[in-house]
Nucleic acid binder design. Structure first.
Lengths: 330, 330
DNA sequence: TTGTACGCGTTATCAC
DNA sequence: GTGATAACGCGTACAA
């Protein structure tokens, strides 16, 4: 690897001039520029980020911390972030925690040791307190989740309202026995979606039956098992609202196997409107989040924190919408 | 941000001692260790990667360059890489190119400027020549794809044989009009899978009909459109081998809409055995790759290159297997 | 327009 | 066991 020194020597100029060649080439005379150009080419020199980062004390890198990349939901969000980031001279790096707190702690080190300038979190296994402290010290924002009152900004849809509307739609369809398959984590989104579910029932004068509420993973199996559980009840529900398309697929899959007619008579709603919802048969009615916009907003929020220090955690809500398909219409 | 100097001053020791506190604490006396510990805590000091990386001229980071994370296929591969990497003190960072050559070039800068120690490629938009040059200069390996004779090592399944076996399975089922829906890129995997397809037909004394071969994206739509094309032929195929589960879903979706009985009579095979193949109805017969093992092997390959310089590109093949489901059995 | 010289935060070498 | 000090590669005042 060639260093700036070697290039300077080869070009017969000072290292400062070589540095200028890359950073403010217009300051150089045509001649010098050419001489440096040749030396650079000759030695195939490329300026080291190691030196530059140390000198400027920034890396121009943003870390996105994901629970997993197995969920295609994240893809477009990240694309959105990237577009905004690159437009501002930043690169986006992603890493996954697998939902493992240990692993997450490990990734945080990149923030502590300044390997990246800031980070975007989705879900986090940090406690509210821990995350608050983190947000106070490092540029950090949340996407699709948020801790109220944290110094970290956040971008999200209104999960309570979204769930409310989804369930209301089922009620409008005539269903009176509506179940919920939630996730068993303590994420704000899960709590809020359950809240929305309860509000809709209440509004229709229906009481919440605890046996209609299931909590588990975001996996396919959670859906399957939940359906079997529901069918084992004396009064099985006739509609199911789930907090993920993958769960909805599990529910529908199992329902069809049991000979249920999934559609208007037996309705199922998913969440996130992933490609799964579109491709499955029947197509799955699902709550769509504005993914690209979520990513863009999150990136902008983070970039803003690089400039000014946090006034207080800015909270941005973006609109969701219910995409109707055959799983509630067929 | 506290620096090592400030900590040294606060603890009344030299910076060297503070450094030792983090790197070789056993070298310090109980006393000193305690004094440093207190100073570190007091100032909430955390060693900067910027300084360390410069000094050691390594970052202990591996970059994984993906076309997209929307394909759940990659998830377990990356998990495998991470396990091996972390066990060796490396972290895995991923970034996506969206298949965009421009974007890929951008990510390569992280390699050039030593922001990461090495990289794992899946598909690449670099030409063979370009990739070869890259591999000569930087620690780089390929996963699931490979360029024969490149200095970069690679881990992959035997795509030709895998495709051959899949198609042979369709032939054994009695099909004589077997179509292929390939991708339209020039990746080695696509070329080899087509080769395998042709070999199987040949072995059964069947001629390859060009109208039975379609090339497009890995998307759902490619499958749908391909099926419609096939049905427009005078002699439509009765079985379709596709190079991705998402394509297979498109084919099946469209086929069912056309009233075809997908199963033994009209068979479809996918590739990669993603969760999609398991969850779709009918379940999709698919060629499974040993994902975790692919990731582990790729990581090991890269780590080895960090030690010794490339003898020549090592090529590792891992076993695939055909997972039979209803789309060829129902 | 160009060069000199310092410092960014760390680790490694060499003394003591 | 501990301290000085010289790198690492770069950017940027400041001087020329």
């Amino acid at each position: 690897m060639a260093t700036i020194k070697q290039v300077a020597a080869a070009a017969g100029v000072s290292v400062a001039t070589v540095s200028r060649y890359f950073n403010t080439p217009e300051q150089l005379s045509e001649q010098t520029r050419e001489r440096v150009r040749r030396a650079v080419e000759q030695l195939t020199y490329y300026p080291s980020a190691l030196g530059r980062n140390l000198r400027t004390s920034q890396t121009r890198k943003i870390l996105v911390i994901l629970p997993t990349i197995s969920n295609p939901f994240y893809s477009r969000i990240i694309t959105g972030m990237e577009e905004v980031a690159e437009k501002n001279g930043y690169s986006v790096l992603t890493c996954t925690t697998g939902g493992n707190p240990e692993s997450e702690k490990n990734k945080l080190k990149m923030l502590y040791d300044r390997f990246v300038d800031g980070a975007v979190f989705f879900s986090t296994s940090l406690s509210r307190r821990q995350f608050d402290r983190l947000a106070l010290e490092y540029p950090v924002v949340q996407c699709c989740e948020y801790q109220e009152g944290s110094a970290a900004g956040a971008v999200s849809i209104d999960n309570e309202q979204a769930a409310y509307e989804a369930v209301r739609y089922l009620l409008e369809l005539g269903h009176r026995r509506v179940a919920l398959v939630n996730s068993n984590n303590r994420f704000e989104s899960s709590i809020l979606r359950e809240k929305g579910y309860r509000r809709a029932l209440k509004e229709y004068g229906l009481s919440v039956r605890e046996e209609y509420i299931r909590r588990g993973t975001y996996g396919f199996h959670n859906g399957e098992e939940s359906l079997h559980h529901f069918l084992s009840l004396k009064e099985p529900p006739t509609a199911v609202f789930t907090v993920a398309d993958s769960i909805a697929v599990g529910v529908i899959h199992a329902a069809l196997e049991q000979g249920l007619q999934v559609g208007k008579a037996y309705s199922v709603i998913g969440f996130d409107d992933t490609s799964l919802a579109r491709m499955y048969r029947p197509g799955i009615t699902s709550v769509a989040q504005p993914r690209k916009e979520l990513g863009e907003a999150a990136a902008r929020l983070l970039l803003r924190r690089f400039q000014a220090s946090p006034k207080s955690g800015e909270l941005i809500f973006l609109p969701h919408r219910l995409v109707i398909r055959e799983s509630t219409e067929g």
